[in-house]
Amino acid sequence: MSKNTFVSLLLRLYPRAWRSEYGGELAVILADRQFTPSIIVDVVLCGIRQRFRYAEVWQVDGAVLALWLLIGTVANSISPLPRSAYNHFFQINWIAELAIGYIYVSHYSRPPAAAALFSAKASLLGIIPELLLAVLWTVNLIHPTILGMDGVPHVHGHLITDFCLRTEATVSPATLMIAIPVTVIPAFLLGLAGGTLARSVSAPCRRFGTIK
């Protein structure tokens, strides 16, 4: 791989808006320097940081939800979570989705329907690890263990235990796709509820403002 290709790959880590403003200058500096591991780490970490700085609330929230799902998958693969813990784990997602709806209406003055859409998009981003698992399973790279509702393995796989799906039925990778509607539709509704809540909270405040 040539140095220029490597530099342009590193710059891809930065958001497009940032690249158009500073990317050329950073590329010049990188092209003139010898790459050391610490320089690469520095550029990579700062790129990720800029991604978060330039990201919208729903993107950050979606990334956090994806990380949350990864943590759950790892924990569940090491030792299957009991049913109650499994349920509590996903209830955190509901709070996050409700919060997105609330924030978009209260801080960004978006209508509740738009806020609900952002919440749905965040939830879709959040289940990417599960969708990735479905793809890897489809191409026979991974065979996950599928747990029954009681937490006992129903289908024995290797290394990884699917976290979203608990069933006694025999399933195919396509079954994991059910995660999309099961996640996105409630997220939309929760986002709508959060947005409506924000609007109903701010309405009396505005009234008080006019009375004064």
């Binding site: 940032w18 403003e21 500073y22 200058e25 950073l26 500096i29 990188l30 320097r33 610490s38 320089i39 520095d42 550029v43 990579v44 970490l45 700062c46 790129g47 940081r49 800029q50 700085r53």
Partner: peptide, 11 residues
């Protein structure tokens, strides 16, 4: 200063 740190600070 690493190039990434420099340009993050400049931003």
């Amino acid at each position: 200063l690493g190039p990434g740190t420099l340009y993050s600070a400049i931003t």
